[in-house]
Computed example of a mutant assay.
Amino acid sequence: MNVLEIQISVALVTRNRPESLNRCLKSLRSQSVQPFEVIVSDDSDLEYATATEAIAKQWDCQYIKGPKRGLYANRNHAAQACKGTHVRTMDDDHEFPEDHFQILEAVVKADPLSIWILGESHYDQIDSTTGIAYLPGEIQPRGFSQLPRNLDDTCAISDGATIYPRAIFSSHHYLELFKFGNLYLEFGARLKALGYRIRYCPKTYIIHHYIHDKRSFNDQKMQQQTAFLAALLTYGCYLPNFFKYVECLSYFSLIGLISTLKIKDYHFNIFDLWRLWIVGRKYQELFNKQNYAQII
């Protein structure tokens, strides 16, 4: 790919937060280098949609209506609308430090075939030295994410702050089985298994206006289910590891049994385990047959 052809499209997803979107786009449009295009895919309810569309157009963005099937369906929808060489995922509660897109353009030009991931800081906790407080993590057997050992060749994904070669989305998509949760961690493991290099960019970051009570997603059961599915597929299929696969099944079987017996509620029961194990087997079959476009 000719370095002069790099065009970074922003695939920004939003839902019911026009004020947050306005802050995000104001920060974006203050950048010294602008992206090739900004797609705003809106999953808002009717009462917020008109204001959201007006804000997107005020900041010279392309507004499209989202599919209203959840975060990952909206990410896929936004990415499919992009026309640049690369897709930069984005959320409406982000802001950006100085020269953010200038730095991104430079790293993508240096290695346009890799997937680039970013760290973040919360708006009230910005590190005075680097600005970066949180790095993207890799899925672990028990469903949580952990700092990668090798940030220059990892399976970590920054859900709303990753730059992909756009061609990836012609065959590969985020899983849409759940509306929210940890499925972005599955996407990173799948892409790494397919030979894509995922690299961390330490030179810039995003500023996240994280407010727990204003999240679109606070479903603990869905969080556990997506964590199990992501870990199951990672260590049972994409990056097979017998010991980590056994750890995954053992841990989720244990908390599933404890929840089913009502000893303690881990928001995950034996029936969830069985159902998602069957789903995982179906995805594994599609992956092994190289039917990648059907893994969605």
Rank of each mutant, 00 (worst) to 15 (best):
55 I>R: 05
173 H>C: 01
203 K>Y: 14
233 L>M: 11
222 M>C: 08
214 K>R: 13
20 S>K: 12
246 V>Y: 07
78 A>Y: 08
64 I>S: 00
253 S>C: 12
80 Q>H: 13
210 Y>G: 01
118 L>N: 12
274 W>L: 15
215 R>N: 14
251 Y>I: 08
14 T>A: 11
214 K>C: 07
248 C>L: 09
143 G>S: 11
269 N>K: 11
65 K>I: 00
16 N>K: 05
275 R>D: 11
71 L>W: 06
173 H>Y: 12
45 D>A: 07
56 A>S: 14
8 I>E: 09
261 L>I: 00
202 P>I: 06
231 A>H: 08
95 E>V: 06
258 I>G: 07
17 R>Y: 02
109 K>H: 04
189 A>H: 05
210 Y>E: 04
191 L>E: 07
24 C>E: 10
124 D>P: 06
160 G>E: 06
16 N>W: 00
175 L>D: 02
42 D>Q: 05
152 D>I: 03
236 G>C: 07
148 P>Y: 09
189 A>C: 03
197 R>Q: 13
197 R>K: 14
78 A>C: 06
89 T>Y: 13
251 Y>P: 13
239 L>Q: 11
206 I>S: 10
142 R>P: 01
72 Y>D: 03
6 I>V: 15
118 L>W: 10
15 R>C: 08
116 W>Y: 05
244 K>L: 10
242 F>D: 15
141 P>S: 02
197 R>L: 02
143 G>A: 09
196 Y>M: 01
